[in-house]
Amino acid sequence: MRVVWSFLLVVLLAAIAFFGAEAGGQALFGVVFPYVAMVVFLVGIAARVLSWARSTVPFRIPTTCGQQRSLPWIKPAPLDNPSTGRGAAARVLLEVLTFRSLFRNTRSELRPGGRFTFSPDKWLWAGALAFHYSFLVVFLRHYRFFAEPVPAVVGWIEGLDGFFQVGLPVVYLTDIVLVAALGFLLWRRLEDARLRYLSLHADYFPLALLLGIAVTGVLLRYFVRPDVVRVKELAIGLVGLHPAVPQGISPLVFAHIFLVTVLLAYFPFSKLVHMAGVFLSPTRNLANDNRMRRHVNPWNPAIVGHTYAEWEHEFHDKLKASGIPLDEE
């Protein structure tokens, strides 16, 4: 049911923008909402990151996935148990670029006969990798609508993405991969009863929203084909801070833009904020040097020391009277 509601909500949002734009609300869906969403996105992300930055990290809590650095003849695992800042940075970078923690994903199953098995499961990793990279390429390709002149890199990405030159407009590989990967990630949640039980609106809605964006985008590029010159004028006007809505843009463009707008505004308040959070995971970005360096908890009260010499000095007379030998003498 949750998945149905999420999809219904996305369809409803798209329909609101489609019919709203058709009824003359182009300025609302094309200018006002995108600006508001962009502000919400940037301020929201900044607020989240700053709140994380304010929280104290008194102690190093990295997950230790390998041998830590100890005696010289024991081989350490510098990436899985980094002991230096550089190693921790490399670990975060690999996590961001290759999703190593998903690579270690295992699947536990109760086999017939009561045998409980754990087996590696790379499908989540593969699906996530396919989704994130194709989405990145799609995102970068859209830069052609926001810049005049268009940087050469964008052209190279487009050329590589449409390498097989299938049809005209050329089919982009990432369009296919993006929709397929999102479909798989959705199917993965629905197929397994346990995963279905664990999945919430917050899991289905982003998938539905991204699928909505991808499907409207594919429709626009290959089937509806709006006047892209006018679409670019709208986008350039937005980023040039001289917003103007050219007439005659297909309402489906506004549905696409509105779904992206919703994604931007929803981003800082949802699990999608892992985009910023992955850099700030204390179990990944801290070096495991607890046994090498002293980490003092910053909110500990100052400890007033009292050494043996001071104590002996304080009770000097009584110790002397009891005949206890003194260090002082």
């Binding site: 940037l42 900044a46 700053l50 930055a53 350039i236 040039g240």
Partner: peptide, 29 residues
């Protein structure tokens, strides 16, 4: 690490607004 986090955040915001900078540099398209 607060300094580094805020630097990273500033870089992110600056990059996110890349088209705005480009539009400001190149003027009206």
């Amino acid at each position: 690490d607060r300094g580094r986090i805020i630097t990273g955040l500033a870089v992110f915001v600056a990059v996110a607004l890349a088209p705005v900078w480009q539009a400001a540099l190149h003027g009206a398209a």
